[in-house]
Simulated scan of single mutants.
Amino acid sequence: MRVRTMADLGALVRESREHSGLTQAELARRAGVSREWLLKVEAGRTPAEMPRVLDLLDELGMVLDVHTQEG
């Protein structure tokens, strides 16, 4: 999945969380964020702070890989 917007990132986090069998509360606790914050991230409604986003991805066993677009 290509992530271009916070909505894309939120959908990816939600899909991975659900695939991992985690509730929002459990993932939030593990990542050290509030459930309300995670809810906003999953909904794509807020420009999340990258360190917290990276904590979420880490808890889900995911790596953010950034490539430059040529041309």
Rank of each mutant, 00 (worst) to 15 (best):
V41L: 03
A11I: 14
M62W: 13
R30M: 10
V66M: 04
D55R: 15
L56Q: 07
L60S: 06
M62Q: 14
E36C: 01
A25T: 15
V63E: 04
E26I: 14
D58M: 09
L27Q: 01
T23P: 07
E18C: 10
L27P: 01
E36F: 00
L38Y: 00
H19A: 14
V66T: 06
L60Y: 09
V53S: 01
V41C: 00
L9G: 02
R29G: 02
L57F: 11
V41R: 00
R35S: 10
A48E: 03
A43G: 15
P51G: 11
E18A: 12
K40W: 03
L60T: 07
R35K: 15
L27S: 02
S34R: 00
G71F: 09
E59L: 06
G32Q: 05
R29I: 07
H67E: 12
T23H: 03
P51W: 11
T46R: 08
R52K: 09
E42A: 01
R30D: 03
V33P: 08
A7V: 12
D65G: 10
H67L: 03
L54T: 06
V33I: 11
P47R: 04
L27V: 06
T68L: 14
L12W: 13
E70G: 15
L64M: 12
S16G: 13
G32H: 06
L12F: 11
A28L: 12
P51A: 09
L64W: 07
R17G: 02
Q24L: 04
A28G: 15
L12K: 08
V53Y: 05
D58C: 04
T68A: 15
E36I: 01
R4T: 15
V13M: 06
M62A: 12
W37K: 00
K40I: 01
D58E: 10
L56H: 11
D65F: 07
V41A: 01
R4K: 10
L54S: 06
S16T: 11
E18R: 06
L27C: 05
L22T: 13
H67D: 04
W37S: 00
L54N: 08
E26S: 13
A48I: 06
D8N: 10
G71N: 03
M50Y: 05
A31G: 12
E36T: 02
